[in-house]
Design a protein around this nucleic acid. Structure first.
Length: 503
RNA sequence: GCCCCGGUGGUGUAGCUCGGUUAAGCAUAAGGGACUCUCGAUCCCUUGACCCGGGUUCAAAUCCCGGCCGGGGCACCA
């Protein structure tokens, strides 16, 4: 009995160890090594955001884990309501690459209309689809009652005739191809869903070449099959679409891929909805698609969030079906771990005030670029003489407000000073045994450049930054000591603009 | 209204498939301490959770039913 007990415990412990070693994704159902095919299917009507990235990263990750294939497919079949724009095709590819999601194959649904037509015709011939010319509201009434519309049971020859007419005769909104399903399905959303409709619109890739366009469920089902997709990972808003699409698979005799529907991913206080963003930009509320308040990949990038952090976050969430709302702190914590060892340190003095220091020692001071890696070298700050035995340095206004008169504090990596007169901002260098608890950053005027930090809520904080920061490349993330990690957005001798990442 | 899917500390997650050996683990946040390297990093300590009610069972976070709460869908969008 005792022995059995021990044996069991051992087993549990080894299993735990295995799980603990690599925090990774749960295994995919029905997945065979080397045979997994996944895809990302963006609509190029805007850049994608972290919510979309969840599906793309999981898809890519699984394809790599199983040594399979990852496909990028642009779903640009709505030239009107969600009109694609040329720039977004490029941005999506750019953001995919930045996230490290290299794809093995690339497709555009707007190139594949003939394929969809062929399948549609086949389904009509088989009596599995029909051309419906009902008024939408009328049709929905019948659907809700579970009744067939007058078009549904017309002869196949008549259906094929109507199908041909969709390419010339019918006008926009007058006819639609529907897939026959169970009219008594408890979920009305499933009943005889629409597969193709007529749109007279200018498509950025194919112009006015086509007027019959497939709807999501139709083109998606066909492409997933034709492209050999074995596993679909997408948001739970598509759960019902899986059931709709299963009719196409059944009628065509195709094998169904595995579909996994994850929950929504939101970040606290961040705007994700493409239409909301578009509106905000048009109204001038947001500066653009990379405004720091937005959850687009480009906005996160601009704020100095690394692709590794985004990937790590999403993989740690996994493909769970429940929605998650991640706190900004959570993302920041992951990002900080990645960025901290790389980011060089600089002084930034927000809302600078001039502090006089009696007995200060002018000269050149060498400060480490990174406290943990002395080999990385140092930066130099030269403190000039200002006559009368005093030295003048800029320090943060807030600190001067909170430090009481008579208190000894430290100018970080310099000397300890005692605040003599709070109103006059006069202090004096002192020697002390102990390191004061309060340490603040400082800057001599001639070593400083004006700096503007764009915060996460798009507010601005102005101050002075040490000009040594010009040694860094634009786009680099640095740590402004006691202020936080920031990404250098642009830098010149006159002004440096940074985007605040996090503490 | 109808149809799906969820609900574990402040936040996120593990455990739920195959009920017990975990006084429910991890991360993050918060509070405290160490470090003459910062409000960063590192190290140590503390706080803190199985939505509610029934049922099945020797035993339920785990299985079943009901309720409550949250999300998504019900487009000629994707």
């Amino acid at each position: 009995m005792r022995a059995l007990f021990e044996k069991y415990r051992e087993e549990i412990e080894t299993r735990k160890k295995e799980e603990g070693e690599t925090k990774k994704l749960p295994s995919l159902p029905n997945a065979e090594m080397g045979k997994v095919v996944t895809r990302a299917a963006p609509n190029p009507n805007g850049p994608f955001h972290i919510g979309n990235a969840r599906a793309y990263i999981l898809s890519h990750e699984y394809a790599r884990i199983y040594n399979g294939k990852f496909i990028l497919r642009f779903e640009d079949t709505d030239p009107k309501i969600k009109r694609p724009e040329p720039i977004f095709y490029e941005w999506i590819k750019e953001d995919m690459k930045w996230l490290g999601l290299e794809w093995d194959e690339e497709y555009y649904q707007s190139d594949r209309l003939e394929i969809y037509y062929e399948i549609a015709e086949e389904l009509i011939e088989k009596g599995k689809a029909y051309v419906c010319t009902c008024i939408p509201e009328k049709w929905r009434e019948l659907r809700d009652r579970g009744e067939a519309c007058p078009c549904r049971n017309l002869e196949i020859g008549e259906q094929l005739d109507r199908w041909k007419k969709m390419f010339s005769h019918y006008k926009e909104g007058e006819a639609v191809v529907r897939i026959k399903t169970d009219l008594n399905d408890p979920n009305p959303a499933i009943r005889d869903w629409a597969a193709l409709r007529i749109i007279e619109g200018d498509h950025p890739r194919v112009g006015r070449k086509y007027r019959v366009w497939p709807l999501y469920n139709f083109s998606c089902a066909i492409d997933d099959h034709l492209m050999g997709v074995t596993h679909i990972l997408r948001g739970q808003e598509h759960a019902v679409n899986e059931r709709r699409q299963s009719y196409v698979y059944e009628y065509m005799g195709w094998e169904k891929p595995v579909a996994i529907h994850h929950g929504r991913l939101m970040i606290e206080g961040v705007v994700l909805s493409t239409s909301k963003i578009r509106n905000g930009i048009n109204k001038g509320e947001y500066s653009g698609w990379d405004d720091p308040r937005l959850g687009t990949i480009r906005a996160l990038r601009r704020r100095g969030i690394t692709p590794q952090a985004i990937k790590e976050l999403i993989i740690s969430l996994g493909p769970k079906t429940s929605d998650v709302s991640v706190s900004w702190d959570n993302l920041a914590a992951i990002n900080r771990k990645i960025v901290d060892p790389k980011a060089n340190r600089y002084f930034f003095v927000p809302e600078p005030v001039l502090l006089r220091i009696r007995n200060g020692i002018p000269g050149k001071y060498y400060l480490r670029l990174h406290p943990d890696y002395p080999q990385r070298g140092s930066r130099v700050l030269e403190i000039p003489e200002s006559g009368n035995g005093e030295v003048e340095l800029y320090v943060p206004k807030d600190d001067m407000k909170s430090i009481p008169e008579g208190k000894i504090f430290r100018l970080k990596d310099l000397w300890n000073v005692k605040l003599i007169d709070k109103d006059e901002l006069l202090s004096e260098r002192v020697e002390t045994e102990e390191m004061p608890k309060i340490k603040i950053q400082w800057l001599p005027l001639r070593e400083s450049i004006k700096a503007i930090v764009v915060m996460g809520d798009a507010s601005l904080i102005e101050g002075l930054i040490e000009r040594n920061v010009l040694m860094e490349k634009e786009g680099e993330v640095v740590q402004l000591e006691r202020f936080g990690f920031c990404r250098i957005d642009s830098a010149s001798k006159d002004v440096v603009t940074l985007f605040f990442s996090h503490k």
